[in-house]
Amino acid sequence: MKRQRRRLLYVVTGLVLLGGAAAIVLSVLSDNLVFFYSPTDLATQQIPDGRPLRIGGLVADGSVHRSADGKSTTFDVTDKVHHVQIIYSGPLPDLFREGQGVVIEGVREANGTIMASTVLAKHDERYMPPEVVDALKRAGRWQESAAAAR
């Protein structure tokens, strides 16, 4: 094979591979984008059921209940305007507690309850997930002074 033809072969192979990879990435990416909503968004917007989504907010006081078999936990997440009920059947993070900022990843059922697949509470109680701050700000319930004091 001549040098030029060989180079052409490499370039074409490279482009085909690159194109293939890009096609896979783009199609899979659009399927796996998880959009972020606040409890108010969930209450006021039309959101398709059955797609994974993320919710940020605070765990509402007095809302945490564990099932008798210890397998699942129900609780409400709030931005201090609207509440949304969450059902989760995995191990809760060590920092999960009432009043704590959390980020939930899950799927919304037809009745509005979220079946959570992941519950994130950061490993630092002084830290508030940015998504939660954002949700509280949009709900008009964010106090800078409280944030600074934390």
Binding site: V28, D31, V34, F35
Partner: peptide, 18 residues
């Protein structure tokens, strides 16, 4: 743009086949 994250199935379905 909108706030979003990329779910882990993305990585399983792109990285693993490669």
């Amino acid at each position: 743009g909108p706030k979003l994250s990329v779910g882990y199935p993305f990585f399983d379905r792109t990285f693993v086949p490669i």
